[in-house]
């Protein structure tokens, strides 16, 4: 039983907000982790002198 027409917009918007926020809670840490790891690698490369300008 899909929510009937009268209330559908409220119900679907609520579930949409829920999905969006949860997705963001999942994605944001992944993105941040990738960024930190890239920074650490870059720092390491700068120190060891293997830094590649064209392809960091």
């Amino acid at each position: 039983m899909i929510p009937d027409f009268e209330y559908a917009i409220y119900v679907w918007t609520s579930y949409g907000i829920f999905a969006a926020v949860i997705a963001w809670q999942f994605l944001q840490p992944q993105l941040r982790k990738r960024r930190i790891e890239a920074e650490v690698r870059e720092e390491k490369a700068l120190q060891t002198g293997t830094y590649d300008d064209a392809n960091p």
Binding site: M1, P3, D4, E6, Y7, A8, Y10, V11, S14
Partner: peptide
């Protein structure tokens, strides 16, 4: 009616 389904989130 159906609006109570919001309850579940």
């Amino acid at each position: 009616s159906d609006s109570f389904r919001i309850l579940y989130i």
